[in-house]
Write a protein that binds this DNA or RNA. Structure first.
Lengths: 197, 197
DNA sequence: GCGTCCATGTAAATGGTTACATGATTAT
DNA sequence: ATAATCATGTAACCATTTACATGGACGC
């Protein structure tokens, strides 16, 4: 899903400037399932404007730089609808923190603990922000569903990490059990493995 | 986190060919938190070989093409350890399916249901594969932790979707409540908003 | 003064995906 | 026959991230 569609999605919730769109990806309802930086938002808005999917209104402000407020057009809504009806690509998840915790035994105990607590803390903050939220009271079914889904995931992570904190962090000895020389386990490449270290 | 570090991580679990490494990212313990295709794995392995982080052993096979089995070296382990001690970047999540469900009201009811059930089904399959798993019995604390974390997340998604299926799918009328013309809600840009559709 | 928030944009560099190129074996 | 699995690699393409460029207002 390209940045243009993502921006159309944000603008579907209301007109906004590029700067405000980025905030939506950081704090708004999209934060948990997508991301975008200035470098992709501004070119996307230019392309959308050229395609007639959005309009742009220069809005002067007092004490602040001028804004370019973008609003979705009917053509834009139609383009979003079309994009929404394509078969969805599979989820993409990339977590360096989890990758690190996977190799907990290779980590310096201090770093291991720091990564763990930081990750847990971030998730707690997400939940706090999502539940404290007073704004955006009139949400649709889909928006409520996604909000609740995000909350459910974050809470599951918090519960799990709280429960297994000791199992991961208590052993300061870092007992690294040497694994066998094969990655799969069930793949029938038994005699193909070759030691070469 | 670049592909080289990811490959080193896989090779830490045992020697493997590029083809087998990709399978690890699809079905193995990394599948839920990272991904990589051939186009990034093969160049990464070449670079690792040149850097001395891995060794390569050409392994002829009967009835199958030759394999290049890569094994991590001590220098590779050290490089992985270094990469593991950098501060982790924030998680990246991209879900087209969730983006679509966010706009459930814009979706054709059939498509809405299809996306929902496909997403739920994928998660059920993940759990089935992860729990049925007979291989990889000797896992470290970190590996068990991450495996359990993945399971906890998938189960949370399944439970949530089962619970709120009707709330999202039952209404065939698609009552789209018009949201106000502002994306934030709590950002103090009240009078800055400009209608222009 | 210094850092942060507001606000927009471009250009270079990085890096990943997709498509191409090849080819044997096995199962349906 | 046809598709899938096994197996490696390159090159073109696409997209994002990062750095650069600019500048006023506000709080510490």
């Amino acid at each position: 899903m390209d940045s243009r569609t993502l921006c159309l999605g944000v603008l579907m919730l209301g007109s906004a400037s590029g700067y405000e769109i980025k905030k939506q990806f950081e704090e708004g309802p999209f934060a948990h399932f997508h991301a975008a930086g200035f470098g992709s938002i501004y070119p996307a808005l230019s392309a959308l404007l050229k395609a007639g999917h959005v309009t742009c209104t220069l809005t002067p402000q007092e004490g602040r730089p001028d804004k370019k407020v973008y609003a979705i057009t009917e053509a834009g809504r139609e383009a979003l609808r079309r994009a929404l009806h394509k078969p969805p690509a599979g989820d993409i998840v990339r977590s360096e923190a989890v990758f690190m915790l996977f190799f907990a035994e290779l980590l310096d105990p201090d770093h291991r603990r720091a990564v763990f607590e930081a990750y847990l803390g971030e998730h707690r903050e997400h939940v706090a922000r999502m539940t404290a939220e007073t704004g955006c009271p009139c949400r649709s079914d889909g928006q409520r569903f996604v909000h609740g889904l995000g909350l459910a995931i974050y809470r599951a992570v918090i519960d799990y990490m709280d429960q297994y904190r000791d199992a991961l962090l208590m052993r300061e000895d870092a007992g690294e059990s040497a694994p066998p020389d094969r990655p799969g386990g069930e793949t029938a490449t038994a005699e193909a493995a070759v030691q070469n270290g």
